[in-house]
Design a protein around this nucleic acid. Sequence first.
DNA 1: ATTATCTATAGATCTATAGATAATGC
DNA 2: ATTATCTATAGATCTATAGATAATGC
Lengths: 194, 194
Amino acid sequence: MGHSKAQKTRTHKRIVSIASKRFREKGLAGFGIAELMKEAGLTVGGFYKHFDSRDDLVTEAVSSAFGGWKRRVDAAKTGEPSVSLAQLIDDYLSEAHRDHPGTGCAFSALAPEIARCDKSTRAVTSEQVRNDIQLIAGLLLGKDKRTARSKAILTFSALVGAMALARAVSDQALSREILNAVAELLKDSGLEHQ
Amino acid sequence: MGHSKAQKTRTHKRIVSIASKRFREKGLAGFGIAELMKEAGLTVGGFYKHFDSRDDLVTEAVSSAFGGWKRRVDAAKTGEPSVSLAQLIDDYLSEAHRDHPGTGCAFSALAPEIARCDKSTRAVTSEQVRNDIQLIAGLLLGKDKRTARSKAILTFSALVGAMALARAVSDQALSREILNAVAELLKDSGLEHQ
DNA sequence: ATTATCTATAGATCTATAGATAATGC
DNA sequence: ATTATCTATAGATCTATAGATAATGC
């Protein structure tokens, strides 16, 4: 009990990190505060010294989930001068990503639920959608800016939709077919203009 | 009270119809059985003579939601020999569809939540994904079957992803940009091979 | 003195069931 | 006699708060 300010900051980050993962796995209504705090090694009473409300946690955790995907792309980038669009597409539409939503893209795991959230969560989401569009547009070489931006939006939409569908179906062959078909066509359409 | 078998069938359909709409609007955890039954003009106690469990209702209501979209396409079809892909794309990516999820496509409103449902709901979903892919493939004229199928999967994924993103962002200009960019590119790519 | 966390609980849900009531349908 | 619906409620949640405890930090 008690504990320092530095400790509180670490605790806060731990709570957000766990929530961010579990929200992507179980949905925004998938667990309660008591369960979350228990996983963080704490009890329910401490929660409201960290967050004004459960919605406040949702905003922070969704924001943190977006950061996770960005870090993954950034990390890949540091290895080489620039990550290729093909690499990003193959990584996104992998079975590993499909089977581990907790560490994956927050859009394919949560977009419709975010659409029902309060303004602050949706504002954070707008900002991240803009970032991701620019990130992908930057990987579409040899196009004028307008074309690259439109194509980036299509690519991003197809990635998010394909992953959501691949996870929703129970037929594993169909799930793989969706991932592969979209990956191949997006990579082709990216190359055809380079 | 009491009531006939025919009356019960109508009541059952009314419950499923309301649930189907509200699930798309509020999510699969967005309301309780008491609230649902009240909107149907009934009380909570009668629910379990219609459904074994809440999950049972989810399966039926999700299935019914898929039917709604299909009927809309079928209705458009009866007007002319065949609906064009461009019409379907414009209809799907309209602001009207974005702003009325309750009567719209169940995938863009619920796919990630369906991914967390039981097998029966996901089996119904698999079947509907197959139907929608074939529907779109049939509208992609002048292609060999394999190509049409792949392109249909990409188109379907992009529609679902674009709508989910357009609803999730709070920035209305960005939301419109997503709908318009994806619609234009999908229509272009559909035509370019005809 | 302040505060990060704990225990305990209020008050509002939610799913599911039990038993009563009033209609259908043999 | 059967059954579709109702009222009432058990039992299990869930969010949020109150007050106690034990540490930090002036």
